[in-house]
Design a protein around this nucleic acid. Sequence first.
RNA 1: GGAGAGUUGGCAGAGUGGCCCAAUGCGAGGGAUUGCUAAUCCCUUGAGCAGCAAUGCUCGCACAGGUUCAAAUCCUGUACUCUCCGCCA
Length: 417
Amino acid sequence: MLSIDYIHENKQKVLDALKNKNREADIDGILKLDEERRKKIQEVQVLREERNKLAKQKFTEETKTRGKEIKDLLKTVEGDLTVIEEKLNRLLSFVVNVPLEEVPMGQDEKGNKEIRKVGTVPSFSFPIKDHTQLGVDLDIIDFERGTKVSGYRGYFLKNQGAILHMALLLYVFKKLTAKGYTPFIAPSIVKKFTLFGSGHLPWGEKEVYKLNGEEDDAYLSATAEIPITSYFSNETLQEKDLPKKFVAFSPCFRSEAGSYGKDTKGLYRVHEFWKIEQVVIGSNDIENARKIHEELQQNAEEILQELGLAYRVLLMCTGDMGEPQMKKYDIETWMPSRKGYGETMSNSIMGDFQTRRLKIKYRNKKGETAYCYSFNNTAIASPRILIALLENNQQEDGTVLIPKVLQDLTGFDKIKI
RNA sequence: GGAGAGUUGGCAGAGUGGCCCAAUGCGAGGGAUUGCUAAUCCCUUGAGCAGCAAUGCUCGCACAGGUUCAAAUCCUGUACUCUCCGCCA
């Protein structure tokens, strides 16, 4: 959510942001409704002031009569105000965040800017298998029974595949905890306000699973970003405690509505996966925000480097970033079967867009309050990362080597049948 | 799932229809003072609006409604917490 004052003062910027992100919102309608809102608030306040004064005076028939009049007037005016505010908030909820000036303009993924490539893309002297073949041959992934039991895009990880998955998660969890991030296991069943607050709604309605009937306020979270960012909702923090850094594990659920035909095979696009997410709640300061963003980026890149995977970093263009985001890097990791890079991490500055919706503020030394900034970046998402890990490390004899950093955790250095 | 009791500011805690625009204490922040290892004193410490400012006003007692000329206080619903019972990884 942008503040109404910001929209007043930066109307053109907001209009540009909407255009560049290919979104629509009724800015003129918002400004007009806000005028009406301000007028109504004044009316209400004047009436309440009189009511409060009367209530303190000696009680007489006249004060009672006037009091009744005020009561009726207030009912009407407050009713009008509520209607206006509801309309205004609905319109406001569709306004996107404004990208930073260094974000390239672009319609879609073609406008993203490659910043760097890191690591060596492996070349193979033998015909390679893709991860689905490796998974079946090494008996570590079972897609057939996955779809039988779970449905479309279902899968089982098994044997050394299951161990590898757990090792990967624990390795990342420990690594970031050692860097001072607070480890969390986050709930995956979340209330609707968390989805709205993190900016997944109103846009991503079809992407989230809703539990039970209409009356239940329960949804399946698509990422730990949602519960963790909401952790401090309706709270005011102290500036000296910022930034708060989290490394949070959670199961993640995505309906993938709208991508039925895409990536139908293998572990690339699944309904249920596990992710460790980096989340930071920081102060309202854009220069500091860029520093935190780079730190999160560095963490993710270190993980890929230690896993020995080749990747590239993209600065996402306006048309390919999310509604709440001000700046976003994606990391794409080399996946031999795709003969290209596939997205494995996504790192964003959200500014105060989420915290304004979630009412997360902080108080500085002078006692002034401001909305926090929020950030999030993937640390590791499995099983998608297994695609890169299995395919890049496959050997001619059909085995797969385990990166050194994982070997203590897996207890083996190679996957073999 | 059943029965009961609760929810007041950063924390503790008073207040059961108008004297509450919430007492008091602690904590925190700012200032003053004194050299005896820390103390004493003063100020500030829920959110917002208008104003250069002094200041004024509105909102706020879990949340949402309602009753009343007037609500922290009465009524209804919801959420959460605690105790006990049941079930359960």
